[in-house]
Design a protein around this nucleic acid. Structure first.
Length: 414
RNA sequence: GUGGGUGUAGCUCAGCUGGUAGAGCGCUGGAUUGUGGUUCCAGUGGCCGAGGGUUCGAAUCCCUCCACCCACCCCA
């Protein structure tokens, strides 16, 4: 048997209606903040991610789906979208368009990791990027939008974590101090951390091993090492969030795995997701444009939602897309008349199913099992009288109406 | 890449110390020529993850491999 490849999956009904719901809510929220959709290719030149995401990151060193094209060039299935959006921004000179560019996207990303709960090799992200401004006002609005979106799809009990990771001017100094401090305590840390001390000292801050916590708490905090500009920026973002009554927790130890982040970073976590508790991550990336070879500066901030994870948390809260009417047609003539009726109803946006190969009882049973709102039987009697008995499957109400009045009845009961 | 767990019907799972498969749910039909949800009856269903070994005989014991899940790493 041929199966879906490891880490990929088929999304089947009724689950797909949850996905549609999440995406519809997202589009609505994006529209209300004046964001517009951008669609970039799933394939990019490998260099884009190597430079944009960071040569040393896990994504680039071991998780990318990279292959050689027939002409010898190296292509990669996108592991994330921000670099692509920035590439498109530069390529099409969107900086020349009036005002800031507020863009959103949704679609599949690919990373070759070992799958587990909430993690797939093909996974879906919904994200947005605001490019063309360094202002903390934009940071606050992006975060406000994120909260709107999550609440809009019905997510409850999430926590917004906030931090600033400084910029290219103040972060290097902090990291060297951190290295110094780590050198002294390294032998007392867990095995993973001892490795991180060398590979990526910031990651030590993210360690979850209980015994390490007291040691990590004593390490220097990035927030004490921000330069004046970064400190101001971070202060303002926090003030604007308070003004908007958006609850958040400052987590000086919140670090992100992608090299391009600077200043504001944030994350939304939710229990009930297993070990992968992060639903969304984002931050500012003022140096990204230059990193991928742009001559013009393009400061920006964005975020990305793990749609698979979000759907997991709201799966039960969303109702499916119910069938409006199931018609049991008895005989040739009735089938013909039913098809006419269905055509009219469908053109009004109602969903209709015709069943002509089952006894009425079985047809009703099917209506019940498929969650139809109404059911009707069309046979010789109805053809003669022009009157159909329409049954409300939820309330058991049963009304006789003329063929031409069915639409109205269905719609008023919706 | 590393650990742990699990693989028997479409789904959830029973099958004790070896005697070549069961239940519930589902699906199809009937009881009930045209009105669902309850009941009852019948039918449909499986190279017991794959290969090899032990044995007269293996779903069951042994070995190898594979797949899926969870976790680590890391991230959405």
């Amino acid at each position: 048997m041929i199966r879906a490849v490891k880490g990929t999956r088929d999304l089947l009904p009724p689950s797909t209606s949850v996905w549609n719901h999440v995406e519809a809510v997202a589009r609505g929220v994006f529209r209300s903040y004046n964001y517009h959709e951008i669609r970039t290719p799933l394939l990019e030149e490998t260099q884009l991610f190597a430079r944009g995401v960071g040569e040393e990151t896990d994504i680039v060193t071991k998780e990318m789906y990279t292959f050689e094209d027939r002409d010898g060039s190296s292509l990669t299935l996108r592991p994330e979208a921000t670099a692509s959006v920035m590439r498109a921004y530069i390529e099409h000179r969107l900086d020349q368009r009036p005002g800031m560019q507020k863009l959103y996207y949704m679609g599949p990303m690919f990373r070759r990791e070992r799958p587990q709960k909430g993690r797939y090799r093909q996974f879906f992200q919904i994200g947005a990027e605001a490019i063309g401004s360094e202002s903390p006002v934009v940071d606050a609005e992006v975060i406000e939008m994120v909260v709107d979106l999550l609440e809009g799809v019905g997510l409850e009990g999430f926590t917004l974590l906030l931090n600033s990771v400084g910029d290219s001017k103040c972060r290097p100094a902090y990291i060297s101090q951190l290295r110094e401090a780590l050198a002294k305590v390294a032998p007392n840390l867990c095995e993973d951390c001892q490795r991180r001390v060398i590979t990526n000292p910031l990651r030590v801050l993210d360690c979850k091993v209980a015994e390490d916590q007291p040691i990590i708490d004593k390490l220097p905090s990035i927030l004490d090492h921000l330069d004046e500009a970064c400190r101001q920026h971070f202060e303002t973002v926090q003030q604007l969030l308070r003004d908007r009554k958006i609850p958040f927790e400052v987590r000086p130890r919140l670090v992100r795995g992608l090299d391009y982040y600077m200043r504001t970073t944030f994350e939304v976590v939710h229990g009930a997701l297993g070990a992968q508790n992060s639903v969304l991550g984002g931050g500012r990336y003022d140096g990204l444009a230059e990193a991928i070879g742009s001559k013009v500066a393009a400061p920006g901030i964005g975020f990305s939602i793990g749609e698979d994870r979000l759907v997991m948390t709201v799966e039960n809260a969303v109702k499916g897309e119910a069938l409006d009417l199931l018609i049991a047609a008895l005989g040739e003539a009735a089938l013909k008349r039913s098809a006419e009726l269905a055509r009219g109803l469908r053109s009004l946006g109602l969903s209709v199913e015709i069943v002509s190969d089952r006894r009425p009882k079985r047809a009703l049973e099917l209506a019940d099992k498929s969650g139809a709102r109404f059911a009707a039987i069309v046979g010789d009697e109805e053809l003669l009288s022009g009157i159909v008995g329409v049954k409300n499957m939820r309330t058991d109400e049963y009304v006789s109406v003329a063929f031409e009045n069915i639409a109205e009845g269905l719609r008023s009961n919706k």
